[in-house]
Design a binder for these strands. Structure first.
Lengths: 138, 138
DNA sequence: CGTGATATGTTATGTTATTACGCTTGAGTG
DNA sequence: CACTCAAGCGTAATAACATAACATATCACG
């Protein structure tokens, strides 16, 4: 059976390395975090990472978390996710939960329709504490 | 009658200057944009701006746009806005429309409740084109 | 007056992201 | 095969965003 983080075979070397680093990580990584992890593999410059990230994000294999200036692998194995994706980021453990909500998306569409605004991209990020961390703190 | 951008009188000098710069601007400003506008008033270092912004954001007089690394004055004159605020950012003219949506907020609350996640802060930013820019492009 | 909390000014530094330039690779075509 | 065109790659330099560390100032309040 397929590993939960199998990687498309048509990625370039750098793209594969970067996606591998993201898949391997528990939480989000900054571009420079990724670079540090991949120095052993020959990467030397931020741009090598940013270029790979651009492609991965473009293809939906990774996501950028704007409020962290960091990146995560897409949680959807088959990367079919379309439209609005929301992220819940735990301030305690740093883990990120990715989800989609059709109601929110629809509601946003209504707002946009009423305003004549054409939506191209939406970022939605919730900061807080996950259940595990709350339980641990209690 | 009150000016639409009257400023609370208990702000410090730097806070007042920074909020003034934001109020005066058509669109979002980066901290360094603000600094440049305020050099004539004696500001010299980024930190002076960041410190003022921290306070303004804390008080809800300004908002940070994560996807732009920039700031806007709060659109609500009386700064009573609580809870989730969404921003629609036009890629054409750079203007930002601020709005609140109770349905989205509630929906998010439901998700959080089901997951046991405690929400502390939410950022929601829509990128796209506003009606004016769409009309102009047609 | 003293003292603690908040704000300030300044320098230096850390972190994130892009520009500019030239070389390499590989698919597709004449 | 040779050509070329698009995509990717490597490197250096720099731009843009943000904070640390430290000293001084201001002001409410006991």
């Amino acid at each position: 059976m397929a590993h939960s983080h199998d990687v498309p075979s048509d990625l370039t070397r750098n793209q594969g390395l970067v996606l591998g680093a993201l898949n391997h990580s528990e939480g989000p990584l900054s571009a420079y975090d990724i670079l540090d992890k991949l120095r052993a593999d020959g990467l030397r410059a931020p741009l090598q990472v940013y270029r790979a990230l651009d492609k991965l994000v473009e293809r939906g294999l990774a996501h950028r978390l704007e409020s962290l200036n960091a990146f995560v692998a897409c949680a959807d194995e088959h990367c079919h996710r379309k439209g609005l994706i929301a992220f819940a980021i735990c301030e305690g453990c740093g883990k990120v939960d990715e989800f989609a909500d059709a109601v929110i998306e629809e509601r946003l569409g209504e707002w946009a329709g009423a305003k004549g605004f054409k939506v191209e991209r939406t970022t939605m990020e919730i900061r807080g504490k996950c259940g595990v961390c709350l339980a641990a703190a209690a």
